[in-house]
């Protein structure tokens, strides 16, 4: 059962690497200026996709983008403080489905790729955001 032992080692490695603070990923995004570009592209993607447009077309996009940059920067331990609402109160009553949630993740993936964020760094941010589905998805 050498394979089982390998798997245990791998899992232990993952545990170690996910506990560390990660300034490298924040740098891979290009700091706050890089995150700002990603969030600009992200909003363009959200407004271009018929699945997500209805949610975002009539909100204060400038303010939302500012809060998203803060939030992503804070999640990546880039030294920002997120000043917006918690995820549950921000999304309550919007009737967001799992498919809507995944559509938003796809938009973010496209935006990050477009802005040249390395794939591994993309996934590190997504790993921080993904569990938020529990507070965001209502149906």
């Amino acid at each position: 059962m050498a394979i089982a032992r390998y798997l245990v080692c791998l899992v232990a490695l993952f545990a170690a690497s996910s506990l560390r603070a990660d300034p490298e990923t924040f740098r891979a995004f290009g700091g706050v200026p890089g995150l700002t570009r990603v969030v600009d592209s992200f909003m363009e993607e959200l407004l271009a996709d018929p699945r997500t447009r209805p949610f975002f077309e009539s909100v204060d996009q400038q303010n939302l983008k500012r809060l998203l940059v803060e939030q992503f920067c804070a999640e990546l331990q880039g030294g920002c403080t997120y000043t917006g609402r918690d995820m549950r109160s921000a999304h309550q009553g919007q009737g967001i489905t799992m498919a809507d949630f995944n559509a938003l993740v796809e938009a973010l993936q496209k935006a990050m790729a477009r802005e040249g964020v390395p794939f591994r760094a993309q996934n590190k941010l997504l790993a921080k955001l993904a569990p938020m589905y529990r507070d965001i998805v209502e149906r």
């Binding site: 899992v11 993952f14 690497s17 996910s18 996934n123 590190k124 997504l126 790993a127």
Partner: peptide, 11 residues
């Protein structure tokens, strides 16, 4: 899926 490691494990 260990997204931060871009790795999926199955047993």
């Amino acid at each position: 899926l260990f997204l931060a490691q871009s790795t999926l494990l199955n047993a």
